[in-house]
Amino acid sequence: MKHTAFSLIRDVNAITGIKKVREAHFESASSAPIKAPAGAVAMGGELHPERISLTVSERENAPDGSVALRLRGDGGRLPVFRPGQYINLLIDGALCPFFLSGTPADALLGVWEITVDPTGDPAAFARIDALREGDELLSGPPVGYFFRQPPRDGETCAVIADGTGLGCALAMQKNDRASAYLCRGADDLPAKQNIIADTVFICGKKVFCESASAAFEGLRTRILFTDAPGRSVGREQFRCTVIAGGETNGLDCYSDEPLINALERNGILLFNKCRTGDCAFCRAKLLQGRVTHFFDSGDGRRNADVKFGFIHPCRAFPDSDVTLKY
């Protein structure tokens, strides 16, 4: 580049020029109190609140024995959800997952619906069956990744569920125009040639899902297990030390249940969202001891979490005394 004495003056002036422009921008700006743009932040909060208070506003017993509850939020609308997502309801001190069986449009009117089937999980059915109109409940936000995503799953879908997946099937039927098949068992599956869909969603207990996926081999499927895997024999008792927010607590835990259950039984309702090991929200550092994870498939943890010794207490079963840090 060629430079002259004249251009030098111009270049130095340009620097002071920026300073002037900058000061002018500041000078002409509003002195009204600063407001952070709130729309997106607020909507994020609306879609994913931490805890929601609900009241049972209606209860319906269907002829087939299933029970539907309509749950009303106390503040206008409830978060919209994706058909196939579920909520965790706090019942008797424990968080239990239930599929949302209604429509996102109803959520915007302040109502969620859940539907349980007597052929599903007996304990879950009993908890819902015991509820009456006017009962109050606490819930987490809608969670889960088992829902239709058009670029991935195509336009048409079918859903095949056992009793534990009834709510999921209903939601997909209502909202995604899915052909839904509720099966009372593995011998109740629809014939493969009757299923015309880009993607078949299979939802139910593991044994059910496995026979369904074998029966529909060759079709594009997505599968969700509703029963959590784990250890069912040889209960051993251990001590769990929990360090959270600068406080330390001790409690008993057992080799045949996920650590998060032990925590919750002791009133420590720390962090949890999906309870299937997928979301990492419950992650805690294992400072001492050993655990075994039971994920639906693979290791649901992120590589770096594994490397740095973090566990997912919602799917981690103790093998010794343990110390967790949140």
Partner: peptide, 27 residues
Amino acid sequence: VTFARYMNSPGGSIYGYKESNWDSIFS
């Protein structure tokens, strides 16, 4: 909306404030 919620960042901006001649690293 996801970024706004996750980072508490206004509007879901992931790029801080907009760069311009009067508001750059140099200035």
